[in-house]
């Protein structure tokens, strides 16, 4: 195995890593907003349901959640079928390995994002809403024209952190043998006794995170024209 072959094979794994990252982000960003609205709801049962859900998702390891989503349906019984068989029969759908990981990631990250959104929204002084109201603006005008950008500015640092963590969390997919970047390197260690690919993939993560950091810094700079 030369450098070229190793690189090609790692790129295969890196592709899975990137897809998992991108799809998780694309789905969890909006889903998190929905969750945060749930946990800020004035309807108490929904609020408590959401709080319990947040507690469970944040209180258990993501790796465990991935394992449960993948193996769970094959072990739980509905009548004399397993849940997996039941789902295939009636809905035609059962998660494959990648989909299981993706599902667990989206839920997990949406929950973390929702807590960041909630913190951001609740940190905006009521005076901003009241100023909007006395000026005759509607609630949604006040939210979208006044509050939102302030929230974005405030949540940018914790969101950046969370998104960088996501890059590295993608490596958890290997617990159910999804061939992402770390798994790809591990295979080479197992098959050819090569150690250096493990260090080599470290560079992949570093570059990926480095580029994201530059992007976040640019965004932060863009929003630095105002304070508050």
């Amino acid at each position: 195995m030369g450098f070229y072959e190793v690189t090609l094979q790692l790129l295969e794994g890196f592709k899975t890593t990137c897809i998992l990252f991108a799809l998780t982000l694309a789905a969890a960003l909006p889903l998190g907003l929905l969750f945060s609205m749930g946990s800020m709801s004035k309807f108490k049962p929904l609020k408590w349901l959401m709080k319990t859900f947040v507690w469970i998702i944040r209180g258990t390891p993501l790796m465990l959640q991935v394992i449960i989503v993948f193996y769970g349906p094959g072990l739980v019984h509905v009548g004399d079928l397993t849940l997996r068989e039941f789902l295939v029969l009636h809905g035609g759908m059962a998660f494959d390995r990648f989909q299981s990981v993706l599902f667990a990631f989206i839920i997990n990250y949406a929950v973390y994002f929702s807590e960041i959104y909630r913190g951001g929204i609740e940190s905006i002084p009521v005076g901003q809403y009241e100023a909007g109201q006395v000026l005759g603006m509607t609630r949604s005008q006040t939210f979208f024209r006044v509050v939102l950008l302030q929230v974005i500015k405030r949540i940018l640092p914790p969101m950046s952190n969370e998104i960088l963590t996501l890059v590295k969390d993608t490596s958890l997919a290997r617990v159910i043998t999804v061939l992402e970047l770390v798994k790809a390197a591990e295979q080479m260690t197992a098959q050819y006794g090569l150690i250096w690919p493990l260090f080599y993939i470290g560079a992949f993560y570093l570059v990926f995170c480095g580029l994201l950091t530059i992007l976040f810094n640019l965004l932060e700079k863009k929003l630095s024209y105002f304070r508050g």
């Binding site: 005076g127 901003q128 009241e130 100023a131 006395v134 024209y225 105002f226 304070r227 508050g228």
Partner: peptide, 16 residues
């Protein structure tokens, strides 16, 4: 609402 206007103690200007 617009029959009245209110000036707050803490201004509540929109920072952006």
């Amino acid at each position: 609402q617009l029959k009245t206007g209110l000036v707050f103690q803490s201004f509540n200007l929109f920072p952006q």
